[in-house]
Every structure is written in structure tokens, then in C-alpha cells.
């Protein structure tokens, strides 16, 4: 299998926080969402992939190449979007493009102009006069104008209005249509990922909880709701994760739908979970594990 992104046993140690070991893979033609609460290690993972920090262990292969050895060649084919604007506020789009374009062998001026037109970005205005959404659009235009095969985005939808968020998600789906590109993006807006992601990688407190296909996740897990008397037997059999008690009883996540059905059919309610519910219960389960 040729992966666009292949992360194996990635580790990074900081004072008071350690990331990993993380392992996950992304194939061309797919979108992978990286989810996790604030401070879980999403940005650290992205920084390690882009070479902004040095991992303490593990390997990162991008386009089949060793990231540590062939970083410059790899970056020619990566487009990146950060949650904050890192372009020069004092520059206009044209000035910033002049600076950035020269770094890329395959920079496509006409493609860049197409995106600028499509996003209705004012060419003569300074970037500091742009709204958050416009800055994000400009970052996207830059990321997409050198025929990148892997787009890496750190919280691209945070702080954006629903209309542009929707446009952005449509654009992401459009990008992967040729099945040669892949998108890896972190977000804690799980509804966005639910809409576009094919795979979900969930990290919590620096640990990998899962990296699976979104459809499998939504098919595997169920939200279980029941009265307080059922909690103990269910917990004794190890069928629940991330129990939340409320005035009517409990709510938890289960991965063993068949076992819960066999033992407690008619006594509990089982619903399909949202990605957010999976994340919340998993994080809670991890916290009290």
C-alpha cells in the first residue's frame, strides 16, 4: 500500500507533556481528521509532520520518503494552512505571493489567480485589513497553488462563519476528487469532520485513542442509556466506556453492541453516536481509566 502519510510510533517529549507513540496512515484520495481536546497534542503532531519540531522517536514517511532526510523535496508537495495568519500583515496579496511563489518549483500563477477570484479576495488591500475568513481563504489559495499532493491544516475552520465553513468543506471534498491528493486536518469541530472526513484519528493527553475509518467508528459504537440499577452489571462486564451519570440514570459508550443487546435488551436504549459523543465518552473513559 502506498501511503501519502505514514506515521509510525511518533513520540515527542516535553516537560510535563508527552506525545505518542502515535501511528496512523493516510492514503491518496482521502481526508483524515485529527481530533482531540485542547492540549491533546494535535498541533504538536502537525508540527512534527512539517518538521517544525524534532520528534524523540518514531518515523514519518510522506509520499514514501523519509521526512527527516528529504524534507525539502517533500515540502514542495505539501500545502499548509494554520489556524492563525502567519503571512505578513503589512503586505498585499500580490506582494506576499511574490515572496512565497519563488520557493515552489511548481507554483502556478494562473491557478492562484483562479482561487483569488473564486474567493473574492481584494488584491490591493493589505492582509491586516482582511477578516479572519479572508485570511483563511488566502492561506488556502497559497496552499493549493503549487499542486500540492498533501494538504495539512491545523484547525482551519475555527472562528469561521458557518457559510464559509461550509464552502471550505466543499472545497476540500473537491480537492480529493482526483484521488491523487490527501488532506490531513485537525479540528475540534467534530461536525465538520463528520461531514468530510474518511478517517478519524483521535488523540487525548498525547495518547492515540484510535485511528479508524469514520464509517466503521459510527457503525461500531453506540450510546447506551439506562437506569441507575443497570450501571453496575454493565460496568462489571466491561461493556461501557466514559460513563456520564445524570438524574435519570447513565449515558455511556459501548463498542460491544451484541453483548449489550444479549444481556440487557429492552432495558437500555441504544442510539447511533455522533463523532462528538464518541470523542466525549472516549476522553472521559481515558480520564477515569
Amino acid at each position: 500500500m502506498s501511503y501519502i502519510l505514514d506515521v509510525k510510533d511518533l513520540r515527542k517529549e516535553y516537560k510535563g507533556f508527552s506525545l505518542g507513540p502515535l501511528s496512523f496512515q493516510l492514503e491518496p484520495g482521502y481526508i483524515m481528521g485529527l481530533i482531540g481536546p485542547n492540549g491533546s497534542g494535535k498541533s504538536t503532531t502537525i508540527k512534527a509532520i512539517l518538521g517544525l519540531i524534532r520528534p524523540n522517536g518514531g518515523s514519518i514517511r510522506i509520499f514514501g520518503k523519509d521526512q527527516a532526510k528529504e524534507m525539502q523535496a517533500i515540502k514542495q508537495q505539501i500545502g499548509f494552512v494554520y489556524d492563525q495568519n502567519h503571512f505578513y500583515d503589512e503586505f498585499t496579496i500580490g506582494e506576499m505571493k511574490k515572496v512565497i511563489a519563488g520557493f515552489y518549483e511548481y507554483w502556478d500563477n494562473s491557478l492562484f489567480s483562479q482561487y483569488i477570484d473564486r474567493f473574492n479576495l481584494p488584491v490591493r488591500k493589505k492582509i491586516k485589513e482582511f477578516s479572519k475568513g479572508m485570511k483563511m481563504k488566502f492561506s488556502l489559495a497559497v496552499a493549493l497553488s503549487h499542486h500540492a499532493r498533501l494538504i495539512i491544516m491545523d484547525e482551519p475552520t475555527s472562528g469561521l462563519d458557518p457559510i464559509f465553513r461550509s464552502e471550505l468543506l466543499d472545497l476540500l471534498l473537491e480537492i480529493i476528487q482526483d484521488e491523487e491528493k490527501a488532506i490531513f486536518f485537525s479540528s475540534h469541530i467534530t461536525s465538520d469532520l463528520e461531514r468530510v472526513a474518511d478517517y478519524i484519528t483521535f488523540i487525548h493527553n498525547g495518547n492515540l485513542i484510535f485511528s479508524e475509518s469514520k464509517d466503521d467508528l459510527l457503525d461500531t459504537y453506540r450510546i447506551v442509556k439506562g437506569g441507575p440499577d443497570l450501571l453496575e452489571p454493565l460496568q462489571e462486564e466491561g461493556l461501557l466506556t466514559g460513563v456520564i451519570n445524570n438524574q435519570f440514570g447513565f449515558e455511556a459508550l459501548t463498542a460491544d453492541v451484541a453483548a449489550v443487546n444479549d444481556r440487557f435488551k429492552g432495558q437500555v436504549i441504544m442510539d447511533k453516536p455522533s463523532l462528538e459523543q464518541i470523542m466525549v465518552h472516549m476522553a472521559r473513559g481515558e480520564q477515569y481509566a
Binding site: L50, G51, L52, M71, Q72, A73, K75, Q76, I78, F80, Y82, Q84, N85, H86, F87, Y88, D89, E90, I100, F103, Y104
Partner: peptide, 18 residues
């Protein structure tokens, strides 16, 4: 100071340049 204000280290270190 402009480089610092715009956090340019992150930008340039994400680009294909040593």
C-alpha cells in the same frame, strides 16, 4: 521586528527552504 510580529519562523520553516 516585523518577522517576529508575523511569527514568520513558522511560515518560513513550513516552506521548502533549509
Amino acid at each position: 521586528s516585523y518577522d517576529d510580529k508575523n511569527n514568520s519562523d513558522i511560515l518560513f520553516n513550513s516552506l521548502p527552504i533549509k
